[in-house]
Amino acid sequence: MSVGQPTNVGIVGCGTISGQYLRTIDRLPSLRLTAVADLDAARAQAIAATRPQVRALTVDELVADPRVDIVLNLTVPAAHAAVALAAIAGGKDVYGEKPLAADTEQARPVLAAAEAAGVRVGCAPDTVLGTGIQTARRAIDDGVIGTPAAATATMVTPGHERWHPNPDFYYLAGGGPLLDMGPYYLTALVTLLGPVTTVVGAASRARAERVIGSGPRTGQAVPVLIDTHVTGVLIHRSGALSTLLMSFDGVATRAAPIEVHGSTASLMVPDPNKFDGEVRLRGLDDTDWRPVPTSAGYLDAGRGYGLADLAATPRSGRSGTEQPRAGAAIAFHVLDVMESLLASAGSGQAVTVRSTCPRPAAVPLTSLVPARTTR
């Protein structure tokens, strides 16, 4: 890649989520799609057919192609590690959908290979780079809430089988509310309050099967083989305590997705599954919540802004002195926290989280899309 030129992106995995990334790549002048690959060759060919400069390749061809700078890994979680390792072996930077790998055992070789090859690895979610979470972080960093003491993160839904025509995988090993949605909430909590050192968890399941509510399988029962309600306490290295509740066993909640409580004020933080949203503050002398003006984060962001952030992070030596904000270190730590929380729920004992990570750098208020000029 030449200095000042767009970063050439090759996509592996052309399923539904690829559409959101394609829209972002099309918007950002710093990224240029050059190749696509999928086990279903027709899906890759369909994308290439709409873009004359994009080639449909096999996965092996794409990860070896010298015209590809970064491999965007949008495969299923079980394939994340294998595709990442192949891309790293080809000397490519890698950015992938969550999780970094199916588990920490599979993720560790990815980190080791990237370190040895001197390439960068990034991972979703990058929603934390948008104006919602970043404005909340700016308020915390500026001391608006005083010393952070505690946080809550809450997600309650009745389960995805009500709308998903094939929800089976949500109720098998590797599924459930924590592994499905937890990365958004936990990545936000680590971004706001720093890494986690210890967890105490509990989990349950309300029923042994779920009934599909839409599509051709409506009325069919799906066995539930995992816990569908997970809760716990996270002890951050900073000393703050976060209480997490992830559930497929409720109906709804009026709780804010995330709240952060400090010695002088509390913050209501918007949905970490979105890039924007209003941050609200209530101080000691306030009689109600008031909006916090947008002050940080990537403006008008969408899925793939973490990819652009990775592309803009310079390589510096083998391991690099600068880490991508949506990088492998925080992605591995979040995966480790989730595994530790489930282990604690199973044992009934507190579990020490073995990994840690630096708190990612804050994002100043930034637009990656050049302003239009008028004549």
Rank of each mutant, 00 (worst) to 15 (best):
D141I: 08
F248C: 06
I330C: 07
L241C: 09
A173L: 13
P177S: 15
G306L: 01
D38C: 10
T50Q: 15
L365C: 06
A331D: 10
V12G: 03
H333M: 08
V110L: 00
A35N: 04
C14H: 08
E259C: 12
P177Q: 10
P216E: 14
T58H: 02
A124T: 05
L368K: 06
A329D: 14
P52G: 10
V279F: 09
P66A: 08
V68F: 04
H160M: 15
A112D: 12
A329V: 06
T50P: 10
Q323K: 14
A37C: 13
V63M: 05
A79D: 13
D126K: 01
D69V: 05
V3K: 14
D309H: 00
A37M: 14
A136Y: 07
L178S: 12
V119T: 05
V199N: 00
V190C: 10
P158K: 07
H236F: 04
Y171W: 08
G213V: 07
Q53Y: 03
P293R: 07
P364N: 07
L178A: 01
G213F: 09
Q220N: 13
R51T: 03
L111Q: 12
A371R: 14
P183S: 01
L284D: 14
R315K: 15
Q106M: 10
R354Y: 02
S214M: 11
G250M: 10
P314W: 05
A208H: 02
Y95W: 07
N8I: 00
A362Y: 09
